[in-house]
Structure formats: structure tokens, C-alpha cells
Nucleic acid binder design. Structure first.
Lengths: 240, 240
DNA sequence: GTCTATAAACTGATAGAC
DNA sequence: GTCTATCAGTTTATAGAC
């Protein structure tokens, strides 16, 4: 019963060659980047520990030993994957926090943008979410925790302003709200992308913006001050 | 970098001997059950694949080989752990579905009871939630999926009645609501019990019923018809 | 029912040829 | 930059003594 080998259904490469983006135009991407993509896919689907370096190597058609020309350790691959993902979330929150609209509009924009970010590069963000415990156990990942904390603070500012402007519930538990909502978006996206085949999981039928609309409505109705219950849900502000 | 060994902080046995519950009164529990408890704890904390049979054996102070006297495979241990947990959830939903109160009261009771169930035996339910993909890949776990589907249907009935009674939003997306709420409770409980040390994770300060109150409020405000926005959140009905 | 001992395969990682 | 070959340690699981 040692059937640990799992063959990954090929993903038709994606990323058809973008016309000269700088560097070299050698018809295709960096091998290193291919490895990161394959590893992210594996880590997202099966977890970091359950993924073997040989599986990653197989996915990019090299031998496991050759991986170590590009990366010193398996953990270094993980580190590289999550670093950008975490930073993207922080940048997103900071940028939206500066938008010249009211707190509710900023919050709606934040929700939609987070769902977007997590959805367009799903593997990396799934890994960020699922390997939390590893980050906390190893000091090599301290900067990940720092960035997550900064992201939390940016969310906090927006919600606090919404409360003091009277848009949101006066006695809103901001801490529980943020952590609950973040997990909601994360899991919703993860599930939207990866769940398939379970009797009750037929979600893929929903287009992404319909899912976004559901979440925004669900969350806003929860945090709005009661006298605003019937008001229209604002559209997200266009960003980027 | 082969430091895969992880020593589990001992959990002071719990389950101080209950006066003769039937079977034998031989001062202590079944060895088999001890193994299941230890395995559930490992699977919940580190995942099924990341846990080794040796770690489980160490936890109950026997050698890895001896485990195979009690269980045929590692997967059989997993199966036994999740079976009861899944069944408990189904029973809970069915029982509450029959309560002679309105749909909102049943739904509130369901939320609180689910949080209770998931919290009093957290390891098993955490495993049920986290090893979903494994269940779907292996036909040995088909009955798990079946029970989950039945549980979903029980929830569905309650929400549908709430909509037709005018208690809940007329255009509520029941499917998205149920799946979102279930994940919310699962993750909330998991996080409540296992998260510790992250800069933004200081949740353990909240008593469980405060957490339950937050979730019930959060969820009910989302699904109620707007004209009922200000109404008091009903208390859960006492069960068992 | 537990132990000893071990099989057979797999693990992350390294050294050196090309 | 990839391959061949391999290390030392791990994995799940088995056989048989006590």
C-alpha cells in the first residue's frame, strides 16, 4: 500500500509567450519560475509536507537532483512562493486604505480585490493560508507573519473609521470580524477553485463576480448599523 | 535537514476514569481508543500525510509495529476517526430539524450546536474538514461523502422553510449560504482551538459562548429579511 | 498484545561527470 | 544546467518470538 505517486494532470502550460518583457526573449519562461509554479500547484493541492521534491521535478521534466541547482532546500521553494503572495495582499490593503471614498466603499473594494488577488494566483495564496503553522514554527518565516500583521492593521483602520462614521455597527467586534472575513474569502476562493466532485460541491457553476457579490452582501449586511439595513450595497471602486 | 521528529506536549490523559460505564472496569480505556485519540490529535495538528505511524505509536507508548495488531492500515485509523464525527453532525442536524419551533430558532440552535460539537471533540472534526480531498480521491470514504450530503439536505430544509415563512431573505442563495456558514463555523472552531502565537491571533481570550454569539449574530444579520434587521437574535433551543 | 527485526520503498539532499 | 548515482535516514507494513 505504498502508492504515494500521484500524476498531475497537465495544465496546458498557460502563460503563452508574452512579447519581450525585458530580460531575454527566448520563447518561454525562466526554468526557475516554472519550478515555482509547479511547486505552488503541488503545495496548494496536497500540502507542503505531502509534496515530494521528486514530484515537483517530474512536473517540470527534470530530475530531483537538478532542483537543487535552483534552490538550496525544499523550504526555500516554499519561501519564495509565499513571499510575493503575502506582499501583494499587504500592498492591496494599503493602497485601498488611501482611496478618497467612505469607509464602506473602501471595505467593499477591499473584499472584492482580495477575492480577485486570491483567485488570479490561487495556488500561492492557498499555500499561504494552509501552511500557517509551519510559518509560525520556523523563524525563517518571521517576515511573513510581520506582513500579515501589517495587513491586519490596514483592515483595522478601515473598519474603525466605518464605525466612527456611523456606517457600521457601533459595537462591532473588529478583531473577530476581520479574522472571520479573511478566512471566509480565503476558504471561499480555495473552494471555488479546487473543490470538485463532492456531492454538495457544485460551486464552479458560479461566475466569480457572482461569488464576490454574494460575499460582499453577506458581509456588509452583518456589519452595517441596523438602520442602514435596506440601503443599496455600493459597487467596488475601480483600482489598478 | 531531516528533523521530522516532533514530540507532542503531553495532554494529561484527560478522561479520568468514569465509574463503570459497561464493559470492563479495568481502570482505564481501551488501548484501541487511546490510539484513535492520539492519531486524531496528530492528524488534526499536522495533517494525515505528515503524521507517521511511529509518532502515533510513540504517543501511546508502544512500537509502530504493534499498531498493526489494532489496525490494518494507516488509512483505517483515519476512517475510524472521521466516521463518528460525520455521523454526529448528521444526527445533530436531523434532530434539530424536528424541533417544534420556527425556522430561525432551529437555525440558531443548529449553528450553536455545530459549534459545540466541533469544539468538544475538535480533533476528529478538524480532520474531517481538512482531509476532504483524500475522502474524495479514495472510494473507501464514499460513506463519508454520503453523510455530508445528508447533513447538507437537513440544513437546506431548515433554510428553505425560513425563506417561505418570510423570516429570511426572499432571494437567499441557500447553497452558497450553507456552504459558507459551515466553513465559517469549522474554521472558526479550528482556529479558536489551534491557533496560537501569530501576531494577529490572540483569540483564545474569548470564551466559547461569546464566539458563538458573534457567529450567530454575524450570520443571522446576513440572512434575515431586511425588515427584521433590528429584531432580537433568538436564543438557541436547549437540546439533549 | 507487544516486542524484535527487517523488508521494500521512499525521503531530502549531495557529488561529480558531461 | 541537467544527469547519473548515491547517501543516510525515513516511511508503511510484515513475520515471528515471547
Amino acid at each position: 500500500m505504498a502508492g504515494r505517486q500521484t500524476t498531475l494532470r497537465t495544465r496546458s502550460a498557460a502563460r503563452s509567450d508574452e512579447a519581450g518583457k525585458g530580460k531575454s526573449a527566448s520563447a518561454g519562461v525562466d526554468r526557475r519560475e516554472l519550478i515555482l509554479t509547479a511547486a505552488a500547484r503541488r503545495f496548494a493541492e496536497f500540502g507542503f509536507e505531502a509534496t515530494t521534491v521528486r514530484q515537483i521535478a517530474d512536473d517540470v521534466d527534470i530530475l530531483s537532483g537538478s532542483l537543487y541547482h535552483h534552490f538550496a532546500t525544499k523550504e526555500e521553494i516554499l519561501e519564495e512562493i509565499v513571499r510575493d503572495a503575502v506582499q501583494a495582499q499587504l500592498d492591496c490593503a494599503l493602497r485601498i486604505g488611501r482611496l478618497p471614498v467612505n469607509a464602506e466603499q473602501r471595505f467593499v473594494t477591499l473584499l472584492v480585490e482580495l477575492l480577485n488577488i486570491v483567485t488570479v494566483e490561487p495556488d500561492a495564496h492557498t499555500v499561504v493560508f494552509h501552511e500557517r503553522r509551519l510559518f509560525r514554527r520556523s523563524p525563517d518565516f518571521a517576515h511573513i507573519l510581520k506582513a500579515r500583521k501589517d495587513t491586519y492593521d490596514a483592515w483595522c483602520t478601515i473598519l474603525e473609521e466605518g464605525v466612527s462614521e456611523g456606517l457600521f455597527l457601533q459595537d462591532l467586534d473588529i478583531y473577530l470580524t476581520i479574522t472571520t472575513v479573511m478566512r471566509m474569502i480565503y476558504n471561499g476562493a480555495d473552494w471555488y477553485l479546487h473543490e470538485d466532485g463532492s456531492p454538495i460541491d457544485a460551486l464552479s457553476d458560479y461566475p466569480l463576480d457572482e461569488l464576490a457579490q454574494f460575499y460582499v452582501g453577506f458581509i456588509l449586511r452583518s456589519i452595517r448599523s441596523p438602520e442602514r439595513a435596506g440601503e443599496l450595497i455600493p459597487e467596488p471602486v475601480a483600482v489598478s
